[in-house]
Structure formats: C-alpha cells, structure tokens
C-alpha cells in the first residue's frame, strides 16, 4: 500500500480500526493454544482452583512426566507416525501415476475415467456400507486396512491431474522425441516439474493422516494399533464422562486437565514443525484445486 502520509484522516482512522479488529481476531485464535500450553505446564491444583488464565502457574513438568511414563502414549505416537508415513507413501504411489494417466489426451475413455473419479465427490455410499466393506475385505483392526483404505480421494486426484494438464504439452513431446516412454516422461519430466503440486498433495495426506481419528476409532479395537488422536479422545472422554468435569486424580502435581493439555501440546508440535511448509503449499493447493472450467 501507499505511503501512510497520503491517507486522509478518515482513511487513517479506518486503517487503525481495521488493524485493531484483526489483531483482536488473531489473538482470540491464538488464545486457546496459549491457554492449553499454560495449563499443560501448570500444577493440577492451580488449574482446578481456576488460577490459570494465560500463563503457567506453579510451573511444573508433572503432566509431561505423567505422559512420558504412559506407555500407551508412546505406542499411539508411534502408530500415528506409521500411519502418516506409510499412508502418505501409498497415497502418492496411487495418486501420482493415476493422475498422470488421467491427464493424457491419448487415454481412451479419458472422459469416462475422469467422471468415474469425480462421481465419488458427488455421491458416496456413506458410513455403513464403507464399514461393512472394510469388514468384508478383512481390513478391520489392521494397520494395512487404515493405510490402504484411506489412500485416495477424488479431490487429491483431480488437484494433481489439473496440475499435470497445465504443464505445456511440449515438455512431454520433447521428451518423447528424445525417446522417452510414459514411465520416463512421468518420472523424469512430470514429477520434477510438479514438485509444488505433489508437495501439496503429500501435505494434504500427511495432515489428514496425522489428524484422522474417526475411522481409526471405528476400525481399530486393538489398543496397540490406535493412533494418537484416538488415544487423546479416550483421555478426553474419560474426562467428560465424569459428571463433575473435575479432577478425580487429586494429586496436586497433575490432573486430567493438565495431562490432556500435555498430550494436546505433544500432538500439535509436529504440526507446528511442518507448518511453514503447510502454509506455503496449501496456499497454492487451494488455488490449484480451485474452480476449473
């Protein structure tokens, strides 16, 4: 924007009010995180007494120590890593070649296959048939079921296909004249040219894997296989099912509140770690996946 001195008095006021309101909004977005972090570092008694507002009271790592010694936490954390890493790899192995094939003009039935993919955006069978299908396939309570069953979705395929379609035809033609086959065109030309789009799709996969809980909750019975989010939910449920919402653990060092908060913080940290990438690519991804004629 232009030099502030050029603004009229009305404009200056407008700009200031605007900045004030936005800052307020941003702070209210940030506040819950600050609060949770503060709770996680506070003593259980301070939280129960209602002393924690925005900073830790009786600074302590008790809640984290509790979580650290909770074996289920580590098992779940490990599982989440497994689901995220392998899930994302499997997703990319299916989506990238498929999206490439769908973007080829020479593919016979291209319209049909694109419709075949897009149709699932508009109509899906719903929770029950999907669950029964997973059951029929013998994918209940298995790592493989979680990894393969959620490997793909139409949105990611279409996003990448659109990107591939936007790559000038001449790149492929030049490679073809140089003697490249489809595998080589995909591997040596399209994938290197599509790094931002592929990164976007990969990040979509990573985030949805990291955060996914619903189907893991439904499909997994074995505590040894549940991901972090399901573990977190169990912890929270045991908190909410307590009518008083109060602490049943009366040791002062930690309480359910501080323990839950500590698990929340621990599960957010990896997200914060990749957040700079997320911001960079999701911006693009939203636009890539946007309206297409």
């Amino acid at each position: 924007m232009q030099n502030m001195n050029l603004y009229s008095r009305g404009d200056k006021l407008f700009v200031r009010i605007n900045i004030f309101l936005l800052t307020l909004f941003a702070l209210s977005t940030l506040y819950p995180f600050i609060y949770i972090a503060a709770v996680s570092f506070s003593s259980g008694s301070a939280v129960t007494a209602g002393d924690v507002i925005y900073r830790p009271i009786d600074l302590t790592l008790a809640a984290y120590k509790y979580v650290w010694n909770e074996s289920q936490f580590w098992v779940s954390y490990m599982n989440t890593f497994i689901y995220t890493v392998f899930g994302t790899i499997v997703s990319l192995l299916i989506i990238i070649p498929g999206a490439y094939a769908l973007s080829r003009p020479q593919l016979i039935g291209r319209r049909f296959f694109n419709l075949f993919v897009a149709f699932t955006l508009w109509f899906n069978a719903g929770l029950i048939p999907f669950f029964l299908n997973m059951r029929d396939l013998g994918l209940l309570d298995s790592y493989f079921g979680i990894i393969i069953g959620f490997a793909c979705n139409a949105f990611n395929v279409i996003l990448l296909r659109n990107f591939f379609e936007g790559i000038p035809q001449s790149f492929e033609e030049a490679a073809r004249m140089d003697g490249a086959n489809d595998f080589q065109v995909l591997w040596k030309v399209y994938i290197p040219l599509s790094k931002p789009a592929i990164a976007t799709v990969a990040l979509f996969c990573i985030v949805s894997r990291w955060n996914g809980f619903f189907w893991a909750m439904i499909l997994l019975r074995d505590e040894g296989k549940i991901p972090l989010q399901v573990f977190l939910r169990q912890t929270i449920v045991s908190l909410t099912s307590d009518e008083e919402f109060g602490s049943t653990l009366l040791e002062a060092a930690y309480s359910y509140e501080t323990v839950t908060a500590a698990i929340i913080v621990a599960s957010i940290i990896p997200v914060l770690f990749i957040y700079p990438f997320l911001q960079k690519y999701f911006n693009k991804g939203i636009l890539l996946g946007g309206v297409k004629e």
């Binding site: 001449s170 030049a174 073809r176 004249m177 490249a180 290197p192 040219l193």
Partner: peptide
C-alpha cells in the same frame, strides 16, 4: 513410426527446457 524412431529433432516455441535440469 514413433517420433523417437524417426530420427528427427524439434525445437519448440517455448523451448521445453526442463527447469529442474
């Protein structure tokens, strides 16, 4: 005959230079 076997080479309007190489 496939393009690669025609023994022709082509210079494209947009050059089609691979940006990653």
């Amino acid at each position: 005959v496939a393009p690669k076997d025609r023994d022709v080479a082509m210079v494209f309007q947009n050059y089609a230079l691979y940006p990653h190489l």
